[in-house]
Design a protein around this nucleic acid. Structure first.
Length: 484
DNA sequence: GCTGCATGTCATCAG
DNA sequence: GCCTGATGACATGCA
């Protein structure tokens, strides 16, 4: 086996010597045919500089009668580099004319190629880069290596269809706007609650803050709606319900927790928010109950002068309509906090309690002589009201975020599809280049000759790309270290 | 009766 | 320290 490691300067602008496995080798750069602008190539000037014995060998053409431009045509045809203007056929080997072995000696520049391939009018400069890339990819040794891609489309394929975007829209303005949705006039509601609170209880003859029967605890709030009126609380009037066209209330659920975190018990759930349930009097909350016992008179000005048991005009709705479970509640009149406020004779509309700035709120509260339970209820109403709006905003933002993410997901999926298409096209182009390169590789080898005029066997030699871009003809099994 | 959705509420944290 | 907004968790009503 020919052990000489040969650098091949197929470009032939220079022939240099470089150490390779301890021995100088010639450099042949002609493989970069036509890719060097500064130094056009003439394939017939290719040199082979065998080492070992440091016998310089100039590359000889495989045939003396190679027609002019044949190599260039071959290269162009195989590499797809377009038309070429390579000049005369490959020359024969010129033994004995090689420079001595010292490395880097005799970098004879031989700008022999004219024409677009190698000259100043050659192909775009990126051809050189493309060539290196091709060499590095194909490694000239495994030209037919299958494309091994780290990308596995299966890993990225969607396993489920994208969630449809849409079906979501910004929440309608909630909050601050709503006025009374009551179709019926509510003249008295605008009156200060204090009037009602301070008004004597006409029905029971009780004052504003009468002593309370514990069993009636916290039922005062229920008078805001005639539907809340419990027969148990008003035994004397229960019989009057039919006369008034009102059916007795349904069996009541236990009103469990009227606790608020401020010590007041308001935290009963919506299950109890159908105020009739709240008439379970055995679980009265002492805080409210003791101070504000049942007042079956006129709970708030809107009811003053209204016949007993006439359902009051629903109070001002909250900032947000209570969707879903709102209908029954709305029929009961207002939100729970509004009913609580009514029950506690809070003289400030809940709307103001909730929406006023803190300074105005404090000022407003200070203008009214409020008991501690009332103040606690007001604070709870304010906190709950604000938190309600905050929760609505939070959910709206969450939905908006979800919609945005879905949109982003859709966009990324489109991007992924596009990249897959690009990759497919690139793979196809790479395959074409590999085939062309393999053909070129074979043809170059067919024309390489040693000093004896013998062809180099691709089985024993290979072309490798050095770090500096030169192409080395090295024996199989040797790894090019580069000329340096 | 179960389920999903909407809503209210509370607790908690951060500004 | 208080107020407020944000948000997770939970409960509840409703279709």
């Amino acid at each position: 086996m020919h052990q000489a490691c040969v650098h091949i300067h197929l470009r032939l602008r220079c022939v240099s010597w470089a150490p390779y496995r301890g021995q100088p080798v010639g450099i042949l750069l002609a493989l970069r045919l036509g890719l060097e602008r500064r130094c056009p190539v003439r394939p017939h000037e290719c040199l082979i500089l065998p080492t070992g014995g440091c016998k310089g060998t100039r590359l000889a053409p495989s045939r003396q009668d190679d027609s002019p431009g044949e190599m260039a045509q071959i290269f162009a045809a195989t590499a797809g580099f377009g038309a070429t203007l390579l000049e005369p056929p490959l020359g024969r080997a010129w033994p004995g004319k090689m420079p001595p072995c010292p490395p880097q000696q005799g970098r004879a520049r031989a700008p022999l190629l004219s024409g677009p391939l190698g000259g100043e009018h050659g192909p775009p400069g990126d051809m050189d880069l493309a060539w290196q890339e091709i060499l590095s990819i194909a490694e000239l040794q495994g030209l037919d290596l299958p494309s091994e891609s780290p990308y596995d489309p299966a890993l990225y394929s969607l396993t489920h269809p994208l969630a449809p975007v849409g079906g979501y829209g910004p929440c309608p303005a909630l909050g601050d706007a709503p006025g009374p949705s009551c179709g019926q006039p509510c003249p008295g509601y605008e009156r200060p609650y204090m009037d009602a609170m301070l008004a004597p209880c006409a029905r029971l003859g009780m004052g504003p803050l009468p002593a309370m029967d514990p069993s009636y605890g916290y039922t005062g709030m229920l008078i805001s709606s005639a539907m809340d009126l419990p027969s148990k609380v008003l035994p004397g009037e229960a019989g009057a319900l039919p006369e008034l066209g009102l059916a007795p209330p349904p069996p009541c659920k236990a009103q469990e927790d009227l606790e608020s975190d401020s010590g007041l018990s308001l935290n009963y759930s919506d299950a109890d928010s159908g105020e009739p349930e709240g008439l379970e009097l055995g679980q009265a909350q002492p805080d409210y109950a003791e101070l504000y016992p049942v007042d079956y008179g006129l709970p708030y000005p809107g009811l003053q002068g209204v016949p007993p048991f006439t359902p009051p005009c629903p109070p001002l709705p909250l900032a947000t309509p209570e969707k879903g479970r709102g209908t029954p509640r709305a029929e009961l009149g207002g939100s729970r906090d509004e009913r609580r406020a009514l029950a506690m004779n809070i003289p400030i509309p809940t709307e103001k309690i909730i929406n006023l700035p803190v300074e105005d709120f404090n000022e407003l509260v200070s203008r009214h002589p409020l008991s501690e339970p009332q103040l606690a209820l007001i604070r709870d109403i304010r906190r709950r009201g604000k938190n309600k709006v905050a929760a609505q905003n939070c959910r709206r933002r969450k939905l908006e975020g979800i919609a945005q993410l879905e949109h982003e997901l859709e966009r990324l999926d489109h991007e992924r599809q596009r990249l897959l298409r690009d990759r497919h096209e690139a793979d196809q182009a790479l395959g074409t280049l590999r085939r062309q390169l393999a053909q070129l590789y074979r043809q170059v080898f067919q024309r390489l000759r040693d000093e004896a005029g013998e062809a180099y066997s691709p089985e024993h030699y290979s072309l490798q790309l050095a770090a500096d871009g030169t192409v080395l003809l090295v024996p199989r099994g040797c790894k090019a270290d580069g000329p340096d």
